[in-house]
Design a protein around this nucleic acid. Sequence first.
DNA 1: TCCATATGTGAGCGTCTGTACAGATACTAA
DNA 2: TTAGTATCTGTACAGACGCTCACATATGGA
Lengths: 120, 120
Amino acid sequence: MQTANTYDRCTTRCINQKRIHTANEEALSDADNHNMAQLFKAMGDANRLKVLHALEQDEMCVCDIAAFLRLSESAVSHQLRLLRQLKLVSNRRVGPILYYRLNDHHVTKLLQIALEHSKE
Amino acid sequence: MQTANTYDRCTTRCINQKRIHTANEEALSDADNHNMAQLFKAMGDANRLKVLHALEQDEMCVCDIAAFLRLSESAVSHQLRLLRQLKLVSNRRVGPILYYRLNDHHVTKLLQIALEHSKE
DNA sequence: TCCATATGTGAGCGTCTGTACAGATACTAA
DNA sequence: TTAGTATCTGTACAGACGCTCACATATGGA
C-alpha cells in the first residue's frame, strides 16, 4: 500500500496540523476542482487557445480554423470536440458547413486575465 | 513534407479566406499565446489547482502541502518548482522550512471565474 | 440514386506529464 | 563535525495527450 504509507509518513512529519485542517475545510469539492482543472487543461494548449481567441471575434467553420492553425481538419475536429464537450464552444449548421462560436462568456474573461499575466 | 501538404490542401478548401486573414491579423503573438498556454496548463492539473486554492488562504510549507494533497513530498516539490518557474508562487525560508505563497494576483481571479464556470 | 464536399470518429503512434524512488543539498543543533 | 530534518533533483516508467491516417457520417446537387 504505497499510498497509505506515503500519507502516514507525511502526517507524522507535517509542521502545522491546524493549517492542513483549515486547507481541507476550505478546499473546493472534488467535482468543482475536477471541472476547473478540465477547463484550464482545455485552455492549456496553444492551438486550442488560438482558436478560442479567434472565435472571440467571430464564428468560423472547421476548414477555416484548420487553415488558420495550419493543421489538418481532422486534428481540428478532434480539438473542437473536446471544446464542445466542455461547453466552451457550440456550432450551428449551414448546409454541410458547421460554424463554431464561443459558448461561454467566462472564456473571454479568462483569456483577458491570462494575457495580462503574460504581459508581466 | 506532410505539414506543407496539409496546409496547401487546407488553403484550397477554406470557405472564407477573408475570415482567415482577419483571424491572423487579430491573433496574439506566438510568445503571448505560448505564455498563456503555459499558465493554463499549469492550472490544468487537479493537484496544482488544489494547492493554488489553498494558498489563497495562507502560505504553507512543503510537507503540509504534501499531507494536504496526500502526495509524496517529492511529487509536491516537483509541482511547486513548475509553479515557481511560471511565477505563480514564491517562497520564504524560515530555517530549513520553505513557506510557499501565491505570487500572482491573477491566479485568484482565474480561480474565481473558473469556479463560476464549473457551477453552470 | 450517385457523387462531391464538409465534418466526425476510431485506432495507432510518438511525445509529454505526473509520480515514485533514490540520492543530493540546505539548514539546525549538539 | 555529525546527525537529523526539510526540501530539491535526476531518473524511470505508466498513463495521458495530440496528431495522422483511414474510414464513417451528413448534407446537397446532378
